[in-house]
């Protein structure tokens, strides 16, 4: 193996650049940066009609998360609105398996509960877990990857082996084991997806850092005696973050499908929970209800569709951001559940 690895060689020096590193610069292409990253993303999102629809859908669902049911924090109502027409757990608000109607836009389920209310409230689980998992996982991954990539040497070697171990578990299998240990439930699922999820960010940022840290201004900052921590987080990470942003957007969808898959396997939430995968698990029998039976399609189509729309929207947004940042992240989605 190379002895060059992780060692920093000073090849050039430009004090002016070091003092004012251009935030808009990343990669090697120093001169083309004109627009800020944020502007590029916004412009791309507007130009890409798919992505625009995606943004619209995601905003709608976030709206549903916030306003579907009142939110209380430590006993204080911080959000008093309640959009759901019926209590999501109330049984018998309609007949058993009532088809969609004005009173019940998505019909009712096997206990006569209002599907619209349940599906709307269900966005809370999938959407928030998706964002929280991605937030935590990317933060942990960035810190881990940055340390590993910046210091190199033995530290890097050990940290990369740890990463290899995490990668050797397919996401869903590790999540299954974690659910067996901690049981189902909201925060248990967050943990079950963060633990395998952070590794991809760590690997991405490490790779970028290996590229970026050869840049002149980084070397200069180091030569000027800047502390490691400030070099990493002030200079290196901001310039290496583009692929991480893209990956994060794309993996929200992966997490949401994973949560739903666990719900479907009956391992995510307790049976009555209005989480999309859990609803699908409980209602999957309606898909095969015997000869000449009416197909109570609304019980499975709506929750499934919601998963699909949300994940699709996030992927279209991620795609657009990918284009905007030209980060060229290959979204290796592990398929429903990975």
């Amino acid at each position: 193996m190379s002895t060059q690895r992780g060692r920093i060689q000073i090849t050039g020096f430009d004090a002016d650049r070091v003092e004012q590193p251009d935030e808009a610069i990343w990669g090697d292409d120093e001169d083309t940066a004109v627009m800020s990253r944020r502007q590029r993303i916004i412009q791309q999102l507007i130009r890409d009609r798919f992505a625009l629809v995606g943004v619209f859908c995601v905003l709608l669902m976030i709206g549903a998360v916030i306003f579907s049911r009142p939110i209380t924090v430590a006993g204080i109502v911080v959000q008093p609105f309640e959009l759901v027409p019926y209590d999501v757990t109330a049984t018998g608000v309609g007949d058993r398996y009532e088809p969609p109607s004005l009173a019940h836009p998505m019909g009712t389920d096997r206990l006569g509960r209002d599907m619209f209310s349940r599906v709307l409230a269900g966005s809370y689980y999938s959407v928030t877990i998706g964002f929280i998992v991605t937030g935590i996982a990317s933060t942990v991954g960035i810190i881990f990857g940055s340390i590993s990539g910046y210091f190199g040497g033995t530290v890097d070697e050990i940290m990369m082996r740890i990463l290899d171990v995490v990668f050797a578990f397919p996401g869903l299998i590790l999540a299954l084991l974690l659910v067996a240990v901690f049981g189902g439930g909201y925060w248990q699922l967050v943990a079950a997806f963060v633990l395998p999820g952070w590794a991809i960010y760590a690997r991405l940022i490490r790779g970028e850092i290996l590229k970026v840290k050869q840049n002149e201004y980084v070397l200069a900052a180091k030569a000027l005696g800047a502390r490691d921590r400030s070099v990493v987080f002030k200079h290196i990470v901001p310039n290496a973050i583009a692929p991480v942003i893209v990956q994060a957007t794309l993996s929200i969808g992966t997490v949401v499908i994973g949560v739903a898959a666990l719900g479907f396997l009956g391992l995510g939430f307790t049976p009555g929970t209005p989480e999309w995968g859990t609803i699908l698990d409980a209602e999957q029998d309606t898909l095969m209800s015997g000869p000449d039976a009416d197909w109570n399609w609304w019980a499975t189509v709506f929750p499934g569709l919601m998963i699909f729309i949300f994940v699709m929207s996030m992927n279209m947004i991620g795609d657009a951001i990918n284009d905007a940042l030209d980060a060229q992240v290959d979204n290796i989605n592990h398929g429903g559940g990975g």
Partner: peptide
Amino acid sequence: DHASRFAALSGISIPNFWLGLMLMAIFAV
């Protein structure tokens, strides 16, 4: 290109358990 991109994104976004159930309900049953 756009159509195939849409199709590919759909393929990534569809939950596989849901897809499997639907395929079985339609094509097998």
